[in-house]
Amino acid sequence: MTDTPRDWNAIRAVIRKDVTAVRRSKAVVIPMLAVPFLLLVILPLLIGVAARSQGGGVGNFLDSVPAGLADPITDLPEDEQMIVLVNGYLLAPLFLIVPLMVSAVLAADAFAGEKERRTMETLLHLPISNRDLFVAKLLGAFIPAIAVSWVGFALFCVVTNAVAWGVMGRIFVPTRLWGVVIFWVAPAVAMLGLGVMVRVSVRARSTQEANQLGGAVVLPLIFLAVGQSTGLLLVDLPVAFAIGAVIWVLALWLTRRGARRFTRDEIATRI
């Protein structure tokens, strides 16, 4: 197959189409905004309020954590400990649900949805290379996933600092850990969501099926593994970096495999 140079005009056109279409479907938009809102606005708000009314140390909890990791928190004044622990650290892995979910939902729409709506054949008959089409569909899910995550995170910072001001008297998020999570781990996780959905969508006949296959089985498992094992490890910056790297490798490997199977013949055979 002859390689054509990458056609950014075509790629942009497909991304714009996918994003416009998705913006108009409530079934996609509502969960995509509701989940980040719950995680990034409501949850920190509740925690902040709880911390203000009860305060108190978290010494018992931190006993189970290796000393080196717990130090940055146990060194703090007691009334600051809980809010810093939860909003500064424990929420970070939970936050990863956002890029994972958004990218997976959008990828399901872009790959399996296109097949379900029978619009894929139209694209196959156009002068856009397999690779460009794949890149467009990937970016069409990846960019919004990152955008939602980052905007959500900005909101989270505002809410958290505002609600905790009474206790903290200073701006304490983003922590450096959050920085790593937002700029390194979150994009990796978004990519992982894509990689999984691209593979699942090859089989699935509809968006719903793709979401069921990907969402119900694969994604929670991955998330559980990531969330559980990193919950407290993520407190440690080098470990957070390393985990991010592992997720990146896995995500890119999955996506590359998906790309190799993303050929016109393969797709047209399964239309």
């Binding site: 075509a10 056109a13 189409k17 279409a21 894929m120 008959h125």
Partner: peptide, 29 residues
Amino acid sequence: RTGVLTENAGLDDRLTARENLEVVARIRG
């Protein structure tokens, strides 16, 4: 250099006629 009318119209319901067509025009340069 070819134009294809597929058996199934293959339009995205969420987009307008013009939007459906303009993507194609853009891809065609």
